[in-house]
Amino acid sequence: MNHKKVQRIMRKLGLKGNKFTRKSRRYSSYQGNVGTVVKNRLHRRFKTTIPCQKLTTDSTEFKCSDSLKLYLSQVMDMYNGEILSYGISMRPTLDFVMKPLEEALEIVKNARYRTTIHSDQGWHYQHGKWVATLKKHKVYQSMSRKGNCLDNAPMENFFGLLKQEMYYGEPPRTYEELKRAIEAYIEYYNNKRISQKLAGMSPVQYRLHTSQLAA
């Protein structure tokens, strides 16, 4: 159904989506200059017509009903908003972000153009192991300006959608329950959740469609 028709019906019935009235509390891994801080190569130029040319990454946290915290780190392709890889952990360790990075690098290793990966200035992304891994794979590194979340808007938008659609307003869940719910949401987001920006297709559908046109 066309979204405008839904809006008309909601206005007529006086309905409002209450999940989107709550703002997400942003998790920050910034600890000052503890390693290498690089320039912002993207300057908010998020759009690209080339798969795997521009990637972005970030981490966020969730509270669980069993007094634990859940941390989510992921890598997104700005071409279609697809989540290429992600990691879930009880602690925001270095390995927690390195595993999704290594999985994403395996996907983009045959990209037509040199890849750039963008992040904030969190300590993980300044760490020598992160920097060395990118250099080894000939991937450019880019960072947001300090304290400027708009410099990484695509990932911030995804975190907002995820939390509004499957976290806020839902019954409290244990770490394992929430982990399964996030895994299911990312599967749904990549393969089934349609987007107007992608001509009414999901990220994976859009990638497959455009690859067929290119062929």
Rank of each mutant, 00 (worst) to 15 (best):
Met155Arg: 06
Ser211Lys: 11
Arg180Phe: 01
Leu94Thr: 04
His3Ile: 14
Glu187Gln: 12
Thr60Ser: 10
Asp95Arg: 09
Phe159Ser: 06
Asn18Glu: 13
Asp77Gln: 02
Gly160Trp: 04
Met98Phe: 04
Tyr188His: 14
Leu42Val: 11
Glu177Lys: 12
Lys4Ile: 11
His3Lys: 14
Glu183Gln: 14
Thr60Arg: 07
Gln164Lys: 11
Ile186Trp: 01
Leu101Trp: 08
Leu178Pro: 08
Thr57Ser: 15
Ala132Met: 10
Ile182Asp: 06
Tyr175Cys: 07
Glu106Arg: 09
Thr174Glu: 02
Gln196Lys: 12
Ser29Trp: 02
Val38Ile: 07
Arg145His: 10
Asp120Ile: 08
Pro154Met: 06
Ser85Tyr: 01
Ala153Phe: 04
Lys129Asp: 14
Arg11Asn: 14
Ser28Lys: 12
Val204Cys: 01
Met76Gly: 01
Arg112Met: 11
Met76Asp: 02
Leu72Cys: 05
His43Leu: 13
Phe62Met: 03
Pro154Ile: 04
Leu72Gly: 06
Tyr27Thr: 10
Lys54His: 13
Asn152Thr: 08
Gly122Leu: 05
Ser119Val: 02
Ser142Pro: 07
Asp95Pro: 05
Pro51Ala: 07
Val6Pro: 03
Gly87Asn: 12
Val204Gln: 10
Val131Gly: 00
Ser67Asn: 15
Gln196Phe: 07
Leu13Thr: 06
Asp77Ser: 00
Trp130Glu: 06
Thr48Lys: 02
Ser142Asp: 05
Ser73His: 02
Gln205Tyr: 03
Val37Met: 10
Arg180Pro: 00
Glu170Ser: 10
Arg22Lys: 15
Lys136Ser: 09
Tyr168Gln: 03
Thr60Met: 11
Arg25Thr: 14
Tyr79Ala: 06
